[in-house]
Each structure stands twice: as structure tokens, then as C-alpha cells.
Design a protein around this nucleic acid. Structure first.
Ligand SMILES: [Mn+2]
Ligand SMILES: [Mn+2]
Ligand SMILES: [Zn+2]
Ligand SMILES: [Zn+2]
Lengths: 132, 132
DNA sequence: CAAGTAGTTTAGAACGGTTTTAAAGTAAAA
DNA sequence: TTTTACTTTAAAACCGTTCTAAACTACTTG
């Protein structure tokens, strides 16, 4: 399936801008990135895009599941092209994230979900500190 | 141990402002809160404090382990008086956090920690969605 | 105790990431 | 083609947080 189809399939109009973003993000190589990272890459690919459009686009892509946002308390939002269920190592000094594939981790016991709610995804973050 | 001793013990000067904050936060009842939440509570206790001082104070308390900060991608930082090792349910709609005590959850398998790093804490977040 | 000094508080400005505004542009529907 | 809904954009606004620099206060030393 090409990127135009992926966008259509997701219910998004394949605009010029969304295609530029899709070409960068949906190429099969996974990555963690900020809005600014992405804009820089758009610029260095010879294109350009307003930061508002970058954010609009990321929000749309996220809402239709083409990308995810990683749960971290850093002030800048970090997005993830890996939409498989997975977890992260977080180097708190640098902010760098490393994927933990789902099969590398497993839970023995889960808490009871509060009344009226359902489990909508578990995120495990293993914080790392440099050894010595 | 009273609050003045707790502060001294943590290497912090027990200033008037830190005592006000300690009286609110270190009373044995755990809570999740933002800087603004805390300032409101300071105000409604008849005291007042600049927002810069609230943030300074939270940073100091956090750095010496009197409170924690929760790992969440909300734009406003959320602090936690529960300094025991524990995890959270997160209602993504409201931002509400609920503690998961350490013994309510357990990991069967952990991934290998990358070379040169050590595990500096695991955070598990179970995202909740309202059921129907 | 007094004097010195290191640390703290504060109002306000600055900052940085993100969202909003409103006008112009574009894709899809009719 | 005409109309309609959606999208993009520059610029401003927003909002949580940090910085600045001056006033203040807790602690140390004599
Ligand atoms: Mn923030
Ligand atoms: Mn964040
Ligand atoms: Zn990832
Ligand atoms: Zn908690």
C-alpha cells in the first residue's frame, strides 16, 4: 500500500503536505522524533512547511493511528512511528528513547481496573542512568 | 519527625515558604498535584507564595526525594507525594492519576539493559478509558 | 551577640513548545 | 464547473516554566 492509499485509508485527504510527512515517516524505518525534528527534516529534503501544519499533521496522524505519542514528562512532545504495542528505555539525561519490543517484557500480575473503566494500553518506561 | 527536621534532614533550609509547602504536602496523605494546584491551596490556607517559589520549592523537594514527578505526556507537570515505588492508572480524558501499589503489579520478564547503563526505575502507566 | 555570606524569595520578563486566528488556498462533492 | 468542506499559513496568542536581578533571610563565624 502506498502512502496516498494509507492516508485515504485512514480517512485523511492526501494533501501535498501530508504526503511529504508520510514520505518521511511511513517508510518502514521506525523513529522517535519531535515536531521540530520533523520540520528540520522536511526542510533538508528541499520542502518546507509551517510549524502549525507540522503540528496539525502530527495530531491527525496520531488520531488515526499512523503514529503514536510517547508518554514522557519531558516538555517537548515525542512521537513514535512504531505503532506496534511496545515499551521504552528512557535516558533521562539526554531524553533518548530506545524501543523495548513487546516480547522482551512481560507482566506477571496486573492490578484490578477501577470500576467503569477499561484498560486502554499499558506503557512501561525503564529509566536509565549511565553506569559509573 | 516534624517537618522542620525533615527539611533539615534533606539538606534544605527550613524557610517560611518551605515550611508552608511541607505542612501541605508532608502530612501523610498522598496526592497528585500541579504547581498551580499547590499555589491555590497555599492561598486558601491564608498564605501566599510567588509561582517562582512554588516551582523552586517543588524542584528542591523533588531533588532530595521528598516528592516525585510522574512521567506523563500532559503539558503540565504532575507531582506526587507518594515517594514509595509505585505505578499509576491514567485517565487520559481527565488527566486523573490513581496509584497502583507496587505489590499490585509484577513483571515476569525484563529486557536486557543497554550496555553502559543501569536500571534507574521502572514506571508503568495503565491508560484508562471509560467503559461504554 | 554582630557582621559577613551564602542561600532564598519575588515580581516581572523571558522563554519555548503548542494552539489559535483568520484569511487564502486546495481537494472533493455536487 | 460550481460549491462546499477541509487544509495551510504567518502571525499572534497562550500557557507552563525558567530566568533575572534586587531585596531579604537563615546560617556561620568571630
Ligand atoms: Mn511543561
Ligand atoms: Mn510532555
Ligand atoms: Zn518507540
Ligand atoms: Zn502516585
Amino acid at each position: 500500500m502506498n502512502n496516498k492509499e494509507k492516508l485515504r485509508n485512514a480517512g485523511l485527504r492526501p494533501t501535498k503536505q501530508r504526503m511529504i510527512v508520510a514520505d518521511i515517516l511511513l517508510n518502514g524505518f521506525n523513529r522517535h522524533f519531535t515536531a521540530e525534528n520533523l520540520q528540520d527534516e522536511i526542510n533538508s529534503s528541499g520542502n518546507s512547511m509551517s510549524i502549525a501544519t507540522v503540528y496539525n499533521c502530527l495530531k491527525k496522524f496520531k488520531n488515526c493511528g499512523l503514529i503514536k505519542q510517547v508518554e514522557t514528562s519531558k516538555d517537548t512532545a515525542i512521537f513514535d512511528t512504531n505503532t506496534d504495542y511496545h515499551h521504552h528505555f528512557l535516558n533521562e539525561e539526554t531524553g533518548e528513547l530506545i524501543d523495548i519490543e513487546n516480547e522482551e517484557i512481560s507482566l506477571r500480575k496486573l492490578p484490578e481496573i477501577p470500576q467503569g473503566y477499561i484498560n486502554n494500553g499499558i506503557e512501561v518506561i525503564i529509566k536509565l542512568k549511565r553506569h559509573n
